[in-house]
Design a protein around this nucleic acid. Structure first.
Length: 464
RNA sequence: UCCCCGGUAGCUCAGUCGGUAGAGCGGGUGGCUGUUAACCACUUGGUCGGCAGUUCGAGUCUGUCCCGGGGAGCCA
């Protein structure tokens, strides 16, 4: 195939008067009847466009170049020169322009103006060609890379936990059923679906969390993490929920809640510093057009200490405050996002890690404290969005875990392998979970989660 | 799933008391210019979300369904 230079390299090149070939998609074109055209090209390598000067001396100037419009794909070969005008430092003076594909302006949906995110969601096959979604794609890539690098540098093993699970008891919401049964002719046995005739010989679902399996590997390999797709069949219609999303779940053997909290803090500081360093142009774009506070918020968070306090102390601070809350506060209630934001933004004005929640409002696998009333759970709260990470030290005592499972009206038999981890060589261990898309929302300032994943799956929508 | 708001030109929206449809942008044509979401003039463009109802007459009122937005619940 043809050799090309990416625009990101050209714009950082000092090789003026050098010859380059670029290929990309036309964002906008301005004609000068004085005898040349300005064509701005974007190839996805960076948010900036390259300005091409197309003079009328080009052999196809009249029959092709003048007809180029937003959306066309082109190859341009030319000489890079300093730009005499404001707006760009360099520009490519074309010696040859080839049009790969046209984009009929009567029907091409993208115009050289701002579109609503709602409209762009209906054309998810074209929206990565816009500034915002191009920037999101690069940022999502950089954040993925930052996450892997963070864990790899610390000796964590990347574990691939299953997408399809035989357990319907992971306890984190409604699950999608996976089946090869003929839905028009479902085999039954004693009035119920006979899953013994299904593909796996039993009912199967898409995973809602890799945590329980991650614990298996943590209790053999030490420090592990998962980073993969997760599925929830909840009928949630909000700007913060997807039916298919990506989750990061580290799990550490020989680790208590304090170690877990320290990792969560270091993790956030690391990935934020990473994107500020690696994506300055895209971050500047988000800061200018999406949310003018995103860069400052991240810079502050990198430098600040995280406040560490217990749920009970948090409740006390909320009770003593003169702030009027829509939901009243008392010991034992789950905190609403207004409470979390008050503590985070008004009381401390920095990220906080809340620990030791009442056992009644947290999951069965969290380790019981000596007070018998609270568990070793933590929520990491950050300004603007509240909870960004949830984690806990896991219950490692066999008998206590059996009690907690029964107390949650679950059947210990369904958790036989999970319980055996506590029977053979059990050890203190801890971990946390982080929704990848919510992390991207925090970094970009985008308010709707459907705009930070390439192809959002939500109730009633699996297009593309 | 619940509450509130919305769906009108390719896009973003206006549309009064129920009386047969408007603007900006985009597209087209012409003009002008080392331009920057260029600019100026003219022009093009509609099953008013679907179905049913009230009415002489519905974009407008009523019912219902679909879709989107904001909030809530669930949660990541």
């Amino acid at each position: 195939m043809l050799k090309r230079t990416r625009i990101v390299e050209i714009l950082s090149s000092e090789n003026l008067n050098g010859r380059f070939v670029v290929m990309g998609w036309v964002r906008t074109k301005r004609d000068s009847k004085g005898g040349f055209s300005f064509i701005e090209i974007n190839d996805g390598s960076c948010i900036k466009n390259l300005q091409v000067i197309a003079a009328q001396g080009l052999s196809n100037y009249k029959d092709q170049v003048l007809k180029i419009q937003t959306g066309c794909s082109v190859k341009v070969e030319g000489i890079l020169k300093p730009s005499p005008a404001k707006g760009q430092s360099v520009e490519l003076h074309a010696e040859d322009i080839t049009v790969f594909g046209w984009a009929d302006p009567d029907v091409y949906p993208l115009q050289k103006k701002r579109h609503s995110f709602e409209f762009l969601r209906t054309i998810a096959h074209l929206r990565p060609r816009t500034n915002t979604f191009g920037a999101v794609a690069r940022l999502r890539n950089a954040l993925s890379c930052a996450i892997h690098t963070f864990f790899q540098e610390r000796g964590f093993l990347y574990i691939h936990t299953p997408i399809i699970t035989g357990s319907d008891c992971e306890g984190a919401g409604e699950m999608f059923r996976v089946t090869t049964l003929d839905l028009g002719n479902i085999p039954e046995k004693e009035g119920k679906t006979d899953f013994s005739r299904d593909f796996f010989g039993t009912a199967a679902n898409l995973t809602v969390s890799g945590q329980l399996e991650a614990e298996i590997y943590a209790l053999a390999m030490g420090d592990v993490y998962t980073f993969g797709p997760t599925f929830r069949a909840e009928n949630s219609n909000t700007s913060r929920h997807l039916a298919e999303f990506w989750m990061i779940e580290p799990e550490m053997a020989f680790c208590d809640l304090e170690g877990d909290a320290a990792l969560a803090r270091d993790f956030l500081k690391y990935v934020f510093a990473y994107v500020l360093e690696h994506c300055p142009d895209d971050m500047a774009f988000f800061n200018q057009f999406i949310d003018s506070s995103v860069i400052e918020t991240m810079e502050k968070l990198i430098l600040q200490d995280f406040e560490y306090l217990t749920y009970s102390e948090g409740i006390r601070l909320l009770s003593e405050s003169k702030e009027k809350f829509e939901f009243p506060v008392s010991w034992g209630v789950d905190l609403q996002s207004e409470h979390e934001r008050y503590l985070c933004e008004k009381v401390f004005n920095k990220p906080i890690i809340l620990v030791d929640y009442p056992k009644e409002i947290k999951a069965f696998y969290m380790k019981l404290n000596d007070d018998q009333k609270t568990v070793r759970a933590m929520d990491v709260l950050v300004p603007r969005i509240g909870e960004i990470i949830g984690g806990s030290q896991r219950e490692d005592d066999y008998d206590l875990l059996v009690q907690r499972i029964k107390g949650a009206n679950l059947n210990p038999d369904d958790y036989w392998w999970y319980l055996e981890l506590r029977k053979f060589g059990s050890t203190p261990h801890a971990g946390f979970g982080l929704g990848f898309e919510r992390l991207i929302q925090f970094v970009t300032g985008l308010t709707n989660i459907r705009d930070v994943i390439p192809f959002p799956r939500t109730p009633g929508n699996v297009s593309f």
